[in-house]
Amino acid sequence: MFRMTITPTLLGKAEVLEGMQDHPAIRAILAWKPEALQDAKFDRGELTLTIAPEEIRAACFTVQTTGYNFFEDLTAVDWHPATPRFQLSYHLLSHPYKERIRLRVMLDDADPSVDSITPVWPAANFYEREVFDLFGIRFHEHPDLRRILMPDDWEGYPLRKDYPVEGYR
């Protein structure tokens, strides 16, 4: 029907660790704490590393010192009703390697919260506020965790999948 661009896909931690052992971010995380790396995926030219939620700040610090110096984006995905429900995607860019990685954190529905990475990148401030505002995920030790896009007295978290697109809540 149409031509598929062929990119090798590596699914699962074992496959990625075998196929991409020389990748700087993987090497750094393995050298720092192998058990923090829960899962990995290399799909459509993008490397995704799933990090244990309690280790995300340290993991960010680890990859920052290996050359992933620029925090580009943070957002969440609501996989309702699956468990764990929330996925946080941190997109980190490396100016020296000219490459991007994605750190992923999976969070449960009950009290979704994770450490703020603002001590590593102050740029994450607005992004964490946005995720808090639209998904209701809390970030520990965030300097100013308030709603950012919605009004302060808004009820509910609009980007959750159980929040309707239109009509009354």
Binding site: D43, R44, T48, D73, T75, V77, S89, H91
Partner: peptide, 29 residues
């Protein structure tokens, strides 16, 4: 199904679209 983050250099700086698909005809996110 899958997830893609595409960055481009917009007039104002780095713009990025993060599109997550669950295999249907509407974007999941």
């Amino acid at each position: 199904a899958g997830e893609v983050y595409q960055g481009i250099e917009s007039p104002r700086g780095q713009m990025g679209y993060y599109v997550v698909s669950d295999g249907t005809a509407k974007p999941y996110r």
